[in-house]
Structures are given as C-alpha cells and as structure tokens.
Design a protein around this nucleic acid. Sequence first.
DNA 1: CTAGGGTTAG
Length: 455
Amino acid sequence: MKYSLSSLSYHIPFLFQRSNSVPQLLQLQALLLKTALDHHQFFATQLISSLCRLSVRHAHSVLDRLPFPPSLFAWNSLIRAYAEAFQSTAAFQVFSNLRRFGAGEADFFTYPFVLKACAQSSMLGEGRVVHGLVVKAGMLADSHVRNTLLHLYGSCRTIWCAWKVFDEMRERDVVSWSCMIEACVACSQPSCAVSVFQEMRLSNINPNSVTLVSLLSACSHLTKLKMGRSIHSFILLNNIKLDISLGTALILMYNKCGQVNDSLIVFSSMEGKNLQTWTIMISGFAHHGKGKEAVSLFNQMEAASSLKPDSLLFSAILSACSHSGLVAEGQSFFSTMVDVYRIKPVMEHYGCMVDLLGRAGLVEEAYKFIKEMPVSPNNVILRSFLSACRKHGSVSESNGRKLVEQLLTEEPELGANYVLAADLSSVFGRWSEAFKLRGAVKGRRLKKVTGCSWV
DNA sequence: CTAGGGTTAG
C-alpha cells in the first residue's frame, strides 16, 4: 500500500489499534523510522504504549532509545506494564529513571502505578520513599494516590502506617474504606476490620463487592456465621453481582463456619468458576469428611470445564481422600497428578499420602513411602506418621525411634512432640523413657503460635 | 492510561 505522508499519519493510529503481535508493531516501528515520523512524540508514545500490552521488554528498549525525552504518558505506560507483569523492581527502576532523566514531574497517574508495584512485592522501603515524594509533590490531594498508599501499607502489613494515612484522609470513598478493611484483615486483625466496616456504614458509604470480599474474609477468620449470613442476604437483597471473587469468599466463609451445604448452594449458583473456586469447594468437602462428594466434584470439573487442575487442587483432593479413608482413590489421584498432569509433588502432597496410608492403618506402607520420597520429611509428615504408629502400632522400634529423634531435633520447642514421643515409648514398653519425655512437656508450648494479634 | 478482593497437607 502506498500512502502520502499526511494520509499515513492519519492511518497510523488505526494501524496501532489493529496490531496485536510484537512483529506487527516492530513493522510499524520500521515504517515510522522510514518516514521520519518516529521523531514525532505522539507516534513514539503510541508505539510504546501499544508495545506495553504485548511485550514490556520491547517497550522498555524503545523508550530507552528514543532520540528525545519520552512523554510522561509513555513512562506511565511502562511503569504500569511492569507492575501488571509482577516485575515490581523493574517498575520502581523505571520510576527512578523517570525522576532522573524524564522531562517534567511524575503525575497522579504515575504514583498509583509505582505504588501498586511496591505493594505487590511488599517493598516497604521503596514504598516509603515514594510516599515521601507524594507528600513533597502535593499528590496527597489525589484520592487515587491516597487509596493506593493505604493499599501499600496494608500489603506490607504495617497497620499503623495504614491507620495514619486513613486517619489523615478528609474524604473517604468506598475504595478507602475497602482498603482499610483489607489492611486489617491482612494484618490479622479481623475484628478491627468489622469495626471499620460498622464505622463505614455510619458514614453512609455503601459497600460494594470488593468491600464484602474483605469483610467475608474477616468473618471467616472469626467464624462469625451470623454476620456471614447477613452479608449473604445483603448481597441477594441488593442484587450485588456474585462474581467469582465474591462467590469464592462466600464459599470460604461457609466452609470455615462448618456449613458445607450452604457452600454448595453458593457454588451451584455461581455462573463462572475458576480453579480457586473448585479448590475451595473440594477442600470444604475434605474438611468435613465428605470424600466421595469431593471426588465426584473433581471428576465433574475434569469433565465439564477446560480448567487444568494444579498443585493446590491436588493437595485438596488428596486431603479429601485421606480424611475419608479413600486409599485407592488417593493413590490414583497421586499418579494422575504425576503421570497425566506432569505436576511435581511437593511436601504437601507427600504429607497427604503419608496421612492417607497412616490413617488407614497401613503403617508399613506409609513408612515405605516416606523412605522412597525424594525429600526428607518435614515436621508435619513426621507427626502424622508417628500418630499413625501410636494408633495402629506395627512399625519396628528402631525405625520409629529414628523418626522420633528427627522430629525432636527439628522442632524441640513444641511440647506436643514430646507427648507423641512419650506415648510411642509407652507403646514399646519403655516406661522410664516415656516418663522422662513427659517431663519435658512442662514449660513448652503445646500448640503452635499462629501470630494472630486480634484486637 | 489510574486505586481495592478469594485458595492448598497437619
């Protein structure tokens, strides 16, 4: 095709819009070079922002080689693209380059992008630096910037900083409140999240689906079934769309509160489901001893959707099998995972298998499995196996003893391990040893510390 | 061209 220069510059924006591959865009770049239109900032910007959609790397190299200072729009596109590609360090690096070499200052698009990148990777130090620049540039006046700052401190689990930003806000919109609720949940303060929500209602701000996802998460942590149910009715009454996230959060809440039947009702009513949704529903069945239902749901997923099960889903289904004594099914899932889906088993999967065999009383098989695993068993697996030994006996004393020693060496601070060790010594009739081990329980924690500091 | 959300063994 032949274009006159003026008609060419008219057509180029459309060409950009139509290009959906890197080679096509590179061809366009060649065209710009040939026609000297590459010296027009408008086209350069368009090239960079189009490239950002497809290949951040290419976009970056074009920006670096521009013969004139790139537009702020181009810088912003690049930072955003890096943030969206989870390359937070690169996003921050581009932001620094913008400040050093760029023409003009960062604007109220730049800061949300770079802050989002910092939040994603919990880069608190970098985030604080950006916060300082935000203050200096007077950008706190922008609500997007303020809300992203709030999100940053929530993600970095520095709740006091989040509160500071939140308290200093004069105007709070639904995003500000949602971010604050989310920050409380992220910092293991679910009851705080609930209070913030109540305050939000008093301020006459209406929650949206994102707010409710965070709030439901707080309900799950607190097992507040009544509140969870009222959120569910709120959703139904207000015709809030049950999207994947909201539906998943609801199912999770019902799971945690022991109401799997309700989980299933929500699950069935959802239109779109992703892998997480299936995983959560299957693990709900797993936790409530409904192994058969879990297995049938797994098969249903394989048959009815194009989703490919992942490592987490296999953890869930293996756990379902082990809790319901479905030994053959569990073993079959394990080999399907390895042979059909080519997923490399990790500690969790081995743990499920040891648990599956151990609970079923197949102690020797469990021992054999542990010995044949390519990794050394962790505390969880050791405890699971030794509990099986305590219950079903029938492992040779010397083999059991070695694993007990391993457990006590790796986790000497947990009192529960000494209880287990003492019980096993009793099984083998070593009474004095059992007595000594029981003495060691004193002064040690019986449960793991979860690190929850609820207010 | 802008901000916020959910999962896995014991």
